[in-house]
């Protein structure tokens, strides 16, 4: 019962804020709405027994990535007169319609039994220690590749953003 109330309220917040993200004209409002959406999604993660991931989501997405976005938006500076309403072109409407169609097909494909509540989760599933152990045993190679990727991203960002190197 609690789970249902939590899920529906968080899902409603997430969907509404996501809709606002793609409809607001001002990028700052979009970004702030996206932060709200990420918070709501973090709540959903927490219901799913992934409190650690939920907190990481807030830390990384809301705390780091979105702050960077807002920083860049502020840095670029949005002149209110510059915020043009986009014109809906035919291709865009077609693309959006295709996306909605895809969503419906996916939903229909996913909507099949069994309709059961989640099984009881053990401590090993819930604890962040399991994630840590997996990260340095089974997923060691992806983990290393990921660190190299992050390094490349840092260097790339510096190269792109700096005027003179």
């Amino acid at each position: 019962m609690f789970e249902a109330i939590l899920f529906y309220s968080l899902a409603a917040v997430a969907v509404i804020s996501a809709l606002l993200v793609v409809t607001r004209v001002n990028p700052i409002s979009s970004a702030l709405m996206l932060v709200v959406c990420f918070m709501a999604t973090a709540g959903v993660f927490a219901i799913l027994g992934a409190a650690f991931i939920a907190i990481l989501q807030i830390l990384l997405y809301a705390g780091a990535i979105m702050v960077l976005f807002i920083f860049v938006i502020m840095l670029i500076g949005t002149d209110p007169a510059d915020l043009k309403r986009r014109q809906m072109t035919f291709a865009k409407i077609l693309g959006a319609a295709a996306a909605v169609y895809l969503a419906i097909v996916l939903g229909l494909a996913a909507w099949r039994p069994p309709f059961i509540a989640a099984p009881m989760a053990g401590d090993a599933f819930l604890s962040p220690a399991t994630i840590g152990k997996q990260l340095v045993t089974t997923y060691l190679l992806p983990f290393e590749i990921l660190s190299v990727l992050l390094l490349i991203a840092i260097v790339g960002a510096v190269v792109l953003a700096k005027k003179k190197i």
């Binding site: 932060v35 990481l56 807030i58 830390l59 809301a62 807002i70 962040p128």
Partner: peptide, 25 residues
Amino acid sequence: DLNAGLIYVFAMSSIGVYGLLIAGW
């Protein structure tokens, strides 16, 4: 009593900047 309590502290301190960002903007 979160089992990821320390990370929670960071998460909160990392979103603390929003108050200042929004105020300034």
